[in-house]
Design a protein around this nucleic acid. Sequence first.
DNA 1: TAGTGCATGTAATGCGTTACATGATTTC
DNA 2: GAAATCATGTAACGCATTACATGCACTA
Lengths: 173, 173
Amino acid sequence: MKPTAVTWAILGLLAEQPRSGYDLKRSIDRTIRHFWAASYGQIYPELKRLEEAGWISGADGGNRARRVYRATPAGRAALVDWLHGEETRIELRDESLLRLFFADTLPADEALGLLRARRDGYAQMHALLRSLDDGSGEPDTPFVDLVYRWGLDYCAWGIEWCERQERRLRRRS
Amino acid sequence: MKPTAVTWAILGLLAEQPRSGYDLKRSIDRTIRHFWAASYGQIYPELKRLEEAGWISGADGGNRARRVYRATPAGRAALVDWLHGEETRIELRDESLLRLFFADTLPADEALGLLRARRDGYAQMHALLRSLDDGSGEPDTPFVDLVYRWGLDYCAWGIEWCERQERRLRRRS
DNA sequence: TAGTGCATGTAATGCGTTACATGATTTC
DNA sequence: GAAATCATGTAACGCATTACATGCACTA
């Protein structure tokens, strides 16, 4: 069992509460997905691998043909090991920055348009994140809340940054 | 010819000045790589595809066995089209956030350690970016400089954010 | 009884990294 | 002449998405 990032995403959610593959996908889409996406094509095979490794156990549950998994003690231990694991390397992948990087080829006003588009991208994501917190539902645990705040704050920062830079570049031209 | 992100990275650099595959890799590692990495395994096959498409042309240059490519007019046109292209969707992939997200499983002080580790990750990347600007070399064009600033500012923001949140969480506990 | 959403899964494909193979040239 | 670096490339592998296939259950 060679763990990958999706391993921990699934195991972490199952440690919190038992879920089916379908539920996992929905939970991920509401939360984790904004900094780490996962698709069915990863989730279902990974559930099998995790069960073989003894880190989760599945049981046919409820009506329908749904199989509900829960984290085993061994799984919880592995999760905690990972949390203690190697240091953090910040890695980015941001196509919008790639575009900005080459914007010097364009006339000045079109180049500024790209900066504006980036700003709008941030605004859109900010709106999406805000819409996830409908106020109902129980309040999040501290670190789940922390990561949610990160998303909001990051977008807010990004919007301001783009606006500030746009003003700066306009002043010089 | 179905373009992908690495297509534009290469084409953009070649539009600026002619380079070999090896030079491209080095340029990418100094600049683009901080928000969009690329490996030889992508670069060399992509150079072939780009040449077949007529977007770049290669010539055996200099001494050694080096092949130097330059963007053709068709390539430049394609690049500009891409720059004008679809709107920007912000997509993230950040394993450190994934860890933070599950930190509630840990005792409070260890969880705060993860936040500190993230801060240190930002600090490390900030130092790396600063080290790239040795002051020598000609000054960057406006948008190349803009993206460089983004990296620095993002790291600075990230450091502050982590420190602020650490203080906040300590106050509550 | 037709449609929608629940639920599970796989196959094909594409993107990207790593590791390896090869050899020339410069520098010490 | 040994080491470092320049330089090009490929094969194997792994990770992830997309699209598709299947069928049940609820509801209008």
